[in-house]
Amino acid sequence: MELTTVWFGLIAVLWAGYFLLEGFDFGVGILLPVLGRDDRERRLVINTIGPVWDGNEVWLLVAGGATFAAFPEWYATLFSGFYLPLLIILVALILRGVAFEYRGKRDDATWKRRWDLCIIGGSLVPALLWGVAFGNIVRGVRLDADHEYVGGFFDLLNPYALLGGLTTLTLFTLHGAVFLALKTDGDMRRRAGELAARLAVPVIAVAGAFLLWTAIAHHDVAGWILSAAAALALVGGALATRVRREGWAFLATGATIVLAVFALFVTLFPNVMPSTIADANSLTTTNAASTAYTLKVMTWVAVAFTPIVLAYQGWTYWVFRKRLTVEHIPAAPVPVSPAPAGAAERATP
């Protein structure tokens, strides 16, 4: 097997890992105002992903870095043609990260409400736009003979890509609801499980329509099989939510995300960015790849460091595996005004 094919597969794995892990982060953020009825409950919702959200984003950095190193032509065309939507995603992720850090800095309702809006928007916008972006990659975009994107921003907002965005948005929201039911206990667990059960039906309809459209448009046998497996996993997750088996439900929604990503990449191969102008203008794993020596060095680096990263992240999830309840969240501390300068000296006998 050629190294270009190997790295195409590895990039698919990285994106699948990112959507699997960051997907429930996005879902939790989107559901913050739905399941967080007061400040203490909203802090509980945020704390379920507090120890892991930034580690989950590492998958995005590695996926982007691997694409840049293994397929620089793909990276250049993608980030120049999709500049505006990717910039919006980046700003949303930055605002969300800042909101996690700054929300608790002041015990003020208005302050917290504004940062909560950043968490919600910083979760909802990427959840939508990632689906739009990948929908366009699989569908194909207007690339000229120099592999430059010659379309406009509104060309990216076609029906197929928008359905892809709605698919990731709804699927990640369901994934987040299932995660909250798995990670909490008591009333929050019950309400998150009930919400996941209600969300399952529309998610099946939207995701099923997108996967069916993809399979019909590309006539790829492997894509059909993976899409069918993803649909079955999603149905299994819906059934698991109804009988309150949160662990199985989370495995099922996670499997749905991974299988759907693999279905898109299998459908895309050997292209990495098809051209809707002419097939000869398409970027492939061959004409977009780095040199054989670069790919060989990257392979050895990946073999050496990937197990370390996976072990560390697995250990993090194991340490923070216990369920949380509102009782674990202390009441918000009352800010104490600093004592006047010299007060300590005057109080000393």
Rank of each mutant, 00 (worst) to 15 (best):
R198N: 10
R189D: 13
A181I: 02
N56L: 12
L226I: 02
R37A: 13
F265H: 02
L3E: 08
H218W: 05
V266M: 05
F100T: 09
T299H: 07
D39R: 14
Y102V: 14
V150D: 00
A233R: 05
A292G: 01
A230Y: 13
W15H: 01
D144P: 07
D116I: 06
L166I: 10
S282K: 08
S282D: 12
L212I: 12
V125A: 03
F26R: 01
P33Y: 01
T48E: 08
I30Y: 01
M273C: 02
L259Y: 10
F71Q: 02
V243W: 12
L84I: 15
T173Y: 11
I329F: 13
A181P: 00
N281W: 13
F179D: 01
F24V: 04
V98W: 04
R323K: 15
V334S: 14
T348Q: 11
A16N: 04
L84R: 10
I257T: 13
L234K: 07
E148K: 06
T284L: 07
V178E: 09
M273S: 06
E2T: 15
A229P: 00
R321T: 12
I257P: 05
Y317R: 05
F320C: 07
A12G: 15
F320N: 14
L10G: 06
R323Q: 15
R189V: 03
D38H: 14
R114H: 09
L31W: 06
W115Q: 04
A289S: 15
G65W: 05
F250P: 00
K112M: 08
R114N: 10
A288H: 03
N287R: 07
P270F: 04
K183N: 10
L60I: 08
L3R: 15
V221A: 14
T77E: 02
T285W: 05
Y317T: 03
G97V: 03
R37P: 07
N281L: 10
L169K: 09
P33W: 00
Y18D: 04
D107P: 01
V301Q: 08
D279I: 00
F100S: 09
V272L: 11
L3F: 13
R42S: 01
F250W: 13
T291L: 02
G164I: 03
E41M: 12
T67W: 07
A249N: 03
G9T: 09
F8K: 01
L129Q: 03
A233C: 04
G314N: 10
D146L: 11
F26N: 07
G36V: 02
G104L: 10
V138P: 11
R103P: 12
V301M: 08
A177R: 14
T316L: 15
I94Y: 10
P72L: 06
V243I: 13
I329Y: 12
L283V: 09
L162V: 12
I204Y: 01
A331N: 12
L295N: 02
D220V: 08
L212A: 14
D279A: 13
D25A: 06
V297M: 04
I137W: 00
D107W: 04
A255Y: 12
L310N: 07
V125I: 15
S275C: 01
D54I: 06
W315G: 00
F172H: 11
L93M: 14
T348D: 11
L251N: 08
F134H: 04
P159H: 05
L268S: 03
L268P: 11
